[in-house]
Simulated assay, not measured.
Amino acid sequence: MRNLWQPIKTKILAVICLFMLSACSAPDVSLYANNEPKFELEKFFSGSLTAHGILKNRSGEVIRYFNATLEGRWENGVGTLTEEFLFDDGEIQNRTWTMTPDENGQYIATANDVTGFGEARIAGNALFMDYILQVPYKGDTLEVRVDDRMYMVKDGVVMNESVMTKFGFEVGYLSIVIQKVKN
């Protein structure tokens, strides 16, 4: 009787594993191709912007919040975005992104505290980017993978959600609102 049930158990286990793997797969940016308003990177990240956000630990507890000023400019199709973050404990962090278009109409992004580069993929109102960020931690620097998901919710306003992982485990979450400064 045991041998009769073994193939059935194996098939059930395989179906469960496939279901779990498909449930964990992240949506592709192309799902948002028809959404409005369109996320035009050069238009949005040009001029002055502000950002306001929270950082949560892996259990979802808010452990920090911050406000930031951003300034973007474009020259010959290449963008520079300078960011200054002021955290609730008084810490200041600075980041400067360089965004270079690639042959597919997307952008390669590098920054002073990013290992390697991120590829910004844009479709409709969404921008997804994955990169390795160097994070100061207890007098040292940790590298965490950041999965950035930005959504333009109306002209001049972007919501950004990020999941940070280390060794494949989720270790933190960022939620940010980025707004263009009206002149």
Rank of each mutant, 00 (worst) to 15 (best):
T100W: 00
G53Y: 13
G47M: 03
T96Y: 07
N67S: 02
V78G: 02
I54N: 13
E75W: 00
L81F: 11
R73M: 04
S48R: 10
T80G: 06
E61P: 01
G53S: 05
G72S: 03
L81M: 09
E42M: 10
N112T: 03
H52V: 04
V78F: 02
R64M: 09
M99Y: 03
E42F: 02
F44D: 02
W74R: 02
N112Q: 05
G77K: 03
N112G: 10
T98S: 08
E103Y: 04
T50A: 00
E119T: 14
I122R: 03
E103A: 13
V62W: 07
L70R: 08
T96N: 04
L81S: 05
G118S: 01
P101N: 08
K56F: 05
G77W: 10
L81W: 09
F45G: 09
R95G: 12
A120C: 15
P101D: 06
R73T: 03
L41H: 04
Q93H: 14
Y65D: 12
I92L: 15
Y107N: 11
A120Y: 15
N104K: 10
T110G: 00
K43R: 12
E83V: 15
G53R: 11
G90D: 14
T80K: 11
Y65M: 13
T82H: 15
G116E: 09
G118V: 00
F66A: 09
N67C: 05
R58L: 09
N57M: 10
L86P: 00
Y107F: 14
G72C: 02
N112K: 07
T115R: 11
D89N: 15
V114W: 13
H52L: 08
N112D: 08
E83P: 15
I63F: 09
T110Y: 03
A68C: 02
Y65K: 13
A120P: 08
E91M: 13
A109T: 12
E71A: 08
N104G: 07
F85N: 00
R73A: 04
E103L: 12
A109C: 13
L49C: 13
F87P: 03
F87L: 15
N76G: 07
L55V: 12
E103P: 08
G53M: 05
R64S: 14
G60L: 00
T100N: 02
G105W: 01
S46Y: 07
R95T: 15
R64A: 13
N57A: 04
Q106P: 10
S48A: 11
T80Y: 03
R58Q: 10
E119Q: 08
G47K: 01
T98R: 11
S48W: 04
K56L: 01
D89I: 04
I63M: 11
S48C: 06
I63Y: 08
N57P: 11
V62R: 15
